[in-house]
Write a protein that binds this DNA or RNA. Structure first.
Lengths: 141, 141
DNA sequence: GTTTATATATCGTATTATACGATGTATGTC
DNA sequence: GACATACATCGTATAATACGATATATAAAC
């Protein structure tokens, strides 16, 4: 199995199918939205550690994202010092545009595929996701 | 077919499996390396149009990437005004780190999959790539 | 051959993105 | 109360990004 071939294909897919979308969010902002989306309990400290930046920087980035309406925050009832972050619907939408494949393009592609092909693609991706999650959560080596 | 589900899976795969790599290239730099990799004949003007920036900005970004050893340039023999850009091996490597999945992670995953599963994943991705290329090159509506 | 157009390089200038130390407030633990 | 933790705010600084002006080189049109 030639993994570099798989990688070539992966990055080509993204190159061809990503949204042609004009940035109105910073690079750092996207990374933060990703972290907020993928954590269960995300605080400023979490963000600063994950992105390896100071807490002040993290706080300010988050503050700007809140102003843009992409993130909301609330104080944790169990520890009022802590701020818990979550994505707004608007934030979710912006994140999709910057990390996902253009669904109108996907729609065109899928309309040309057999049911069997569609299912194959879906199964493959889900298998990769599942194994990927295991790696991410250190359940595998 | 629920495309948003496919997209959720896609972005999760990337989130779990991408390289944990420290940036020593700018966001714009990565975009330019991508363009250089994916074009057959890439000039400063091409870059400026694709990224929708002025030619001077494009020229300067490219100049910096050349200094870092990621891109090389040569004059087109048929039109000496034109500079043709290509990736260096070093540039290719940096691009992989910023756009691909971590191959050591993939290796772990694939070592756990049957030959059949591996082939299914590979076939699926190649099918998506092929159709994606068609879309990109306007062969499909 | 001259004029005009094209392609890129360089420089000066400016804005935005990103970062952190210092400081302050609020809350939690001992 | 003393100390620790979490985050917010402000001042400061650097890096990234952008473009207009200008210049040089080359190609096309007349």
């Amino acid at each position: 199995m030639e993994l570099s071939e798989l990688n070539r294909v992966w990055s080509q897919i993204y190159f061809y199918l990503r949204y042609d979308y004009n940035e109105d969010i910073t690079h750092r902002g996207v990374r933060i939205l990703q972290q907020v989306k993928n954590g269960e309990y995300v605080t400023i400290k979490e963000i600063s550690e994950k992105l390896q930046i100071s807490h002040n920087t993290a706080s300010e980035h988050v503050s700007r994202l809140i102003k843009k309406g992409y993130i909301q925050k609330e104080r944790d009832n169990k520890d009022r010092r802590k701020t818990v972050l979550s994505l707004t619907p608007k934030g979710s939408e912006v994140l999709v545009k910057h990390t996902c494949l253009d669904e109108s393009k996907l729609d065109k592609i899928f309309s040309l595929l057999s049911k069997e092909e569609q299912n194959m693609i879906m199964s493959s991706l889900k298998l990769l996701e599942q194994k990927g999650r295991d790696i991410h959560e250190n359940r595998i080596g």
